[in-house]
Nucleic acid binder design. Structure first.
Lengths: 144, 144
DNA sequence: GGTTATAATGATAACAATTATCAATATCAA
DNA sequence: TTGATATTGATAATTGTTATCATTATAACC
C-alpha cells in the first residue's frame, strides 16, 4: 500500500485529537491521495463511491476538513462555486494563474514572492502561516 | 454632492450597457462610497435601508455586481462566509494580511510583489488582469 | 407633456454548498 | 467482552446567492 507517510501523518493527527480510525476515512484519504487534481467534495464523493458505494457525502465533507487540519490538503477558492481541495503534504508551495475565459489554471511558483511576503508580514508584526495568491488573466489559448 | 468622479464612472457604464438609472442604485452607490469598509451585502443593505427603507436586498446584490463591473468595487473572499466588497476606484492596489485568530486584517502594498507577478504571468504567456493575495497569520495583538 | 419599449424593483421561491441533527453502528482502551 | 464515545449515513436546516415575475420607473421619441 502506498502513501505510508501520508497515512502516518493522518494517524498521529487522529491519535493526538482523540479521534478514531474508520474504513471510510481510509478510503477517502487514499482516493484523495491518488487523484492528483484539485477536487471538489462532489468529485471526490463520486470517486470514493466506486470503491465504497455506501459512503455518504457528509463523511467526505468531514474527512476533507480533517485532511486540511493535519496538513495533507488545503482549501482553494476560485471565485464562486464549490471549494476545491489540493494536495498539500510535501508539495512545494505554489500559486495559481487562473484564466478568466476558460477557467483553467496553471500552477506557478516563485521563491522570491514568498520572501517578499515574509518581509511584508514582518513589517506588520504578523507571524505568517500561509497564503493564497490567485492571479487572474487570459491564457495563451484564449488570447487566440 | 461628493463622489462626482465615481458617479461619472457609473454613469458611463450604465450608458454603455444600455441600462437605466434609478434612485435605489444611487442610494446604494453613495452609501457604499462613503463607507470605507469591506462591507458584506447584508451590512450595506442595513446601511442603505436607513436612507431608503423600502429597498430590497436583491437590488443590493445586483448593484454591487454592477459596481464591480465598472471598476468601482471588487469582491473579496476571506475563507468562507459572505463575499465582501471593497473600494476599488483610485485605490492603490493592496493585498491583505488576515489574522487567523481574531479575523481582523491589515491592508498592505508592495510594488515589488506586483512586478514579480507580472513576470510570472509573462513566463506562462498570460495577460494578467488582476490578482488576489491573502496572507494568513497571527497578528501582533493575538500573539499577546 | 404623453406614449411606449424596456429596464429596474421588491418579494420571495429556488438553488447550491455546507453544516447540524440524530439514531444506529463501529472503534478501541481497559 | 464491555462500555464509553467517536463515526456514520440520511436528511433536515442553514446560509449566501440567484432566478422569477408581476408591478413600477426610466428615458427616448413624438
Amino acid at each position: 500500500m502506498a502513501f505510508e507517510e501520508e497515512q502516518k501523518v493522518f494517524d498521529s493527527f487522529v491519535r493526538e485529537k482523540g479521534l478514531k480510525h474508520s474504513g471510510q476515512r481510509k478510503d477517502i484519504l487514499l482516493t484523495f491521495l491518488k487523484t492528483e487534481k484539485h477536487l471538489t467534495v462532489d468529485e471526490l464523493y463520486t470517486l470514493v463511491k466506486k470503491k465504497n458505494p455506501s459512503i455518504g457525502i457528509a463523511t467526505v465533507y468531514r474527512t476533507l476538513k480533517l485532511l486540511c487540519g493535519c496538513g495533507l490538503s488545503s482549501e482553494l477558492r476560485f471565485g464562486d462555486g464549490p471549494v476545491r481541495y489540493e494536495h498539500f503534504y510535501r508539495h512545494e508551495h505554489h500559486d495559481h494563474l487562473v484564466c478568466v475565459k476558460c477557467g483553467n489554471f496553471i500552477e506557478v511558483m516563485d521563491a522570491e514572492i514568498e520572501k517578499l511576503q515574509e518581509r511584508l508580514a514582518k513589517k506588520e508584526d504578523f507571524t505568517l502561516q500561509g497564503h493564497k495568491l490567485l492571479m487572474y488573466g487570459v491564457c495563451r489559448k484564449c488570447k487566440g
